[in-house]
Amino acid sequence: MSEKSKPRVAIFDFASCEGCELQIANIEEEIIDLVNLVEVVSFREVMKEHSDDYDIAIIEGSIVRPMDVESLKVIRKNAKILIALGACACIGGVNRLRNRFTKEELFNEVYGKTGFGDNPLFDVLDETKPVDGIVPVDYYIPGCPIDRNEFKRVILALCEGKKPELPGYPVCVECKKNENVCVFEKGQFCLGPVTRAGCDAICPSHGNSCEGCRGLIYEPSNECVKEVLSRYGLDYEEMTRRRNMFNCCGREDQ
């Protein structure tokens, strides 16, 4: 591929831990292949250079402040393709947990009497939103953090002019293939049955339960949920609490 035809990629972050960007930086030996494939023009976490001339924008983080909304809109305008990177950008993630509080409650809780007055750096939206709550998103790379292989797959597909696709089935499929003892059978709660696969069931395969960080793909009926919870002696509050960690929708979910 000639230098000229390489897509120009810019990586941006909003409210997040930047762990997903770290996953990109950690591609290690294949990073050479990545930079052969694309030209990275902006990536604050690993480089000083910056350019506003890019084809693909990759966004990490959820949108928390009015000023972020404006920056995001500019990025959307500049980019031909916009990708949401990680749980915060794709579904709001843990940042959305704050949506159960009003702006005032939140300020009071975090900053107390000090306050920050009119400083726009500390101004927040009424609700924390995922990237697609503000601008249209073309592709998603879910997870907390993202799966490096999935990131590579998506980037490669785009470079080859293809539409990247995410698995349309839940984590259970990968978990069963990995021959794990079901987390429910161990008496714990797991979001694997309703969470989008693509992580190779990494948490259940290492003795933990699925937290739903890749987003829910299926909303089971109440009847089904009740049946499952009672069969395994688990309670509804526990389930809601676990689901809300990454998939909190708003105040009604408290």
């Binding site: 069963k176 299926y218 089971p220 089904c224």
Partner: peptide, 9 residues
């Protein structure tokens, strides 16, 4: 089917 989670297990 109303109770099925469609997990494919």
């Amino acid at each position: 089917a109303g109770k099925c989670m469609q997990c494919g297990s």
